[in-house]
Amino acid sequence: MKTSNLPNYADLDFNLDFANFNPEDIEVDETINAVFVIDTSYSVSSYINDLNQAFNDFTDSMQSSHIADKLFVSIIEFSGDVNVTSGFRPVPSIPQMDFSKKLGGWTALYDAVYTGLKNALDYRENLENSGVETKTLLFIITDGEDNSSKNPPQKVKSLIDKLRKEERNAFSFTTVLFGLGDQANFKKAQKDMGIEHLAQIGTSGEEIKKMIGFISQSISSVSAGKQALAPVF
């Protein structure tokens, strides 16, 4: 498989390689691009097994669904560092995940969201240039406030604002912040980054399952030509 032209991240020094799927090898004319930005700081240890289970159930069910050929998934894990676990790949090629492998001490939330978002937008542009229409959903899953990013949240916001100014993007781009637990001011993070929806949920296995269930439904809804669902928990 070939890699696409990578965007210029020299100024951020993230040392990333997205290895997105080559647009010219895609055999559909519309894709759903789902980005998962997942917090793997130490504080998530208490629910990481539930998250692994729910996420892997999600990929299992999507891999056998009717939208498997048009669902592309990118995974960003972050603690103090931002790790691009996967650039955009067709969901059938997403392996079973274990988010406990890269647990770390800090929370570079803004850097991680910026990284995932910038790649999503660059890839979206590449797809459009090769005739593939794209709907993008960005899901951020975190239990804490940012404490180590090099980038301010406004950098994320300005990317989202710029995108929203174009009419054709209005219904094809959705961002959701899932705030797990009650240890952080998620509303402020949402507002500062310009994230469209905020869902605050608990950290029990049941609630994590519910969150992933919502993500599945949201992807199916977008695939059927409807708007992404607003999270209600």
């Binding site: 055999e27 004319d29 459009e128 090769s130 005739g131 593939v132 229409e133």
Partner: peptide, 10 residues
């Protein structure tokens, strides 16, 4: 690519 015509229209 089997979606060539549709993608060219896009």
């Amino acid at each position: 690519n089997k979606t060539m015509l549709s993608r060219k229209c896009n």
